[in-house]
């Protein structure tokens, strides 16, 4: 089961949403809830997924949908830290790639290999 926690950034400049463990369908609802909350506030979103061990399609869909919604609302959803291999492996197995995606947020797609950090 995955774990979703907020961490204060160093120097008290905002928060980072840290995702850890196995992000499966059991975590999907919570993940959506948290992300929607941020979307409805004016707060910028920074996520760290470096401790994610694995991810399933349900959670990938939530993250993709969130990224798209943030883009539509002209808001930034950025990643801190590396995208771990477990996520890349799942994306590859699911054949999810920004190259075959229609979403207008594709240019800043977090799944683009090698672009998962700032």
């Amino acid at each position: 089961m995955g774990n979703i926690t907020w961490h204060d950034k160093a120097g008290g400049r905002g928060r980072t949403l840290k995702l850890e463990g196995a992000l499966t369908i059991e975590t999907a609802s919570e993940l959506k809830h948290v992300l929607l909350q941020v979307l409805e506030t004016a707060e910028p979103l920074e996520m760290n997924m470096s401790a994610v061990e694995s991810i399933d399609l349900a959670c990938v869909q939530v993250l993709c949908s969130a990224h798209c919604s943030f883009h539509q609302a002209n808001r930034k959803m950025t990643l801190a830290g590396e995208i771990p291999e477990g996520i890349h492996a799942a994306l590859e197995a699911l054949a999810i790639s920004p190259d075959a995606c229609d979403s207008p947020c594709t240019p800043e797609c977090p799944w683009r290999k090698g672009e998962g950090h700032e």
Partner: peptide, 24 residues
Amino acid sequence: HVICHLKELPGLKDLDPEACYTYW
């Protein structure tokens, strides 16, 4: 060659986190 389609994925607000919107 597997090609994934996410075109039916709704916005976060309308998303049912437990539904499958993806096809291949």
